[in-house]
């Protein structure tokens, strides 16, 4: 029991340092001269990793029953993917604006 606890704390602190490190990496990326789309993709990739670490270890979802994960997460991801449908209209708007100007 005592041994399992210290291992748990070690994981928590590793995750903490990992999250701080990924944040520093993101800030460094922000000052690279990259195209906006490349930057957005890289930043979101890192943010999803950070979110997954928080959900899995801080929110403890990794240690819950798999049924809880299956109930909560896939439907949420599906909704987020569906929401991207609005971007087609957004680029249409940008195109129309460029025609007017």
């Amino acid at each position: 029991m005592e041994h399992a606890e210290t291992a748990g704390l070690r994981i928590v602190f590793s995750v903490w340092f990992g999250l701080l490190g990924l944040t520093v990496l993101e800030v460094i990326l922000a000052y690279r001269q990259l195209p906006l789309q490349t930057m957005l993709t890289m930043l979101m990739f890192l943010s999803v990793i950070k979110a997954a670490l928080i959900i899995a270890y801080f929110m403890h979802l990794r240690y819950e029953q798999a049924s809880l994960f299956v109930t909560l997460i896939p439907a949420l991801v599906f909704i987020l993917i569906m929401m991207t449908a609005i971007f087609a209209d957004s680029s249409r708007l940008a195109h129309m604006r460029s025609l007017v100007q």
Binding site: E26, A30, K50
Partner: peptide, 26 residues
């Protein structure tokens, strides 16, 4: 209450890069 707090932390992990880092004055 911890679940709620970690979630607030999680949301900031998206707002920070999207709002601040993508609008950094370079």
């Amino acid at each position: 209450s911890g679940l709620y707090w970690h979630f607030v932390d999680l949301v900031w992990m998206f707002i920070f890069p999207l709002v601040y880092l993508l609008s950094a004055k370079t």
